[in-house]
Amino acid sequence: MIEGIYWITWRELKRYFNSKVGILIRFIQPLVWLGFTGNIFSETKILLQQVGFLGTYLDYIAPGVVTMMVLFTSIFGGMTTLLDRRLGYMNRILASPISRTSIALGKVLGISLIALIQSGTLLGIALFLGIRVSTGILGIFAIILTALVVALGFSSISLMVAIKVKSHEAFWGVVNFMGMPLLFVSSALFPLELMPSWLADIAKFNPLTYSIDIMRFFMAPQGSFINLIPNLIIIGLFALIVVSFCAILFNREITKAL
């Protein structure tokens, strides 16, 4: 089982590192956000101060942009599974004795590690651009760990979509439809306190809101870490439930032809 997961993940990562153009393209959008949006909205600093955030807007959205990278990398990650099925490669894997669950978990882990590499690199670039992580190296480690948990959750969702819809058009439709609202209706780009209350209420159901608050804490701590414990539990449970559900659904769908 563990070995199966390892090798499915191995292939995902090999494919990732062998497609060099793909790696670069994925950095464009987040960098645009950091470079432009972070500056365009710099005057909102006063608004942020009203709700107790003391840094610049760039400081504010840095965890949001890192999350954006995690979110989009993981939510598009189901694509390789869709391709594997389309091209018949999945049948080759299924005709071997490897356990079906380890295929699902290996895929999720592979996508999540890619999301981790991407967001880690982006965080590095952000640091280079002058964004501070005041909790130091341990804080960076905590941010990356948070990113991994979020990635596990959303790559599971992506894999479930891929296994369910079977066509490219539907896949892109669904994940695009999910991606943007998930990002906007969260604390990624703007504090919930400054949103209309109905939108803030919706944002409270978004796991990203909680993971972003954790990341933001480690970049510029405000208040006590104790306050974050509910956040940790929420994103942990979110990931656990979604990953398990994904493994079950994958098992069922992949053997449906049987």
């Binding site: 070995e3 090798w7 191995w10 090999k14 071997s96 004795p97 490897i98």
Partner: peptide
Amino acid sequence: KFQAHLYN
């Protein structure tokens, strides 16, 4: 290599 490990 990948194929070989599918078969353990």
